[in-house]
Nucleic acid binder design. Sequence first.
DNA 1: GTCAAGATTAGT
DNA 2: CTAATCTTGACG
Length: 203
Amino acid sequence: MSGRRLGPAFFARPVEQVARDLLGRHLLRVVDGERLVLRLVETEAYAGETDAASHARGGPTARNRAMFGPPGVTYVYLIYGLHHCLNLVCGPAGEAAAVLLRAGEPLAGLERMAALRAGQPRRDWARGPGRLCAALALDRRHDGLVLPHPELWLEAGTPLPNAAVARGPRVGVDYAGAAARWPWRFLEKGSPWVSRVSRAAAP
DNA sequence: GTCAAGATTAGT
DNA sequence: CTAATCTTGACG
């Protein structure tokens, strides 16, 4: 196996620290009794109400309620009425900080992910936050779960050394003013599994 | 009540 | 570059 299951203590830290530390960790998902494994290669940190780019900026709503829960809770939202995105709540309860999981390298359950991705090219299974949720069959029903959960959890995996980590501004948050330029996107240098936007931005 | 825009993606 | 399609927050 890939190590111990990560619990609340892992997430109860500053959100940008957790986002950095999630790279190289393993995200596990059980679908119909089958184990799917992704090795995380791209994340983004979002703070709470002080972050103009965060969904929590306006306080709690029906959609973002889970963000205000304790560390280790999932926040899954629907974007553009089409795609789901998975976040993990960080910091103390009520702070509403969370890490968006943007991309992962598939390690196990490839056939199942292929079926869930319905005809997409194999290399595209988990590149991008919407694709990641599609590959793992995650949607709003998985909002507010407490990790570790019987069908969704994180294992220690192998954290990346600093030399293997790149960072840059968050994607798609131009509306957020100065906060749009905070370097809170973290990714594995040179990984072919990072999202399309991160590949385009890479040298 | 209306309405514009969004932490995206696939297809022109 | 644009369509697809649902939730939210601003505005009356």
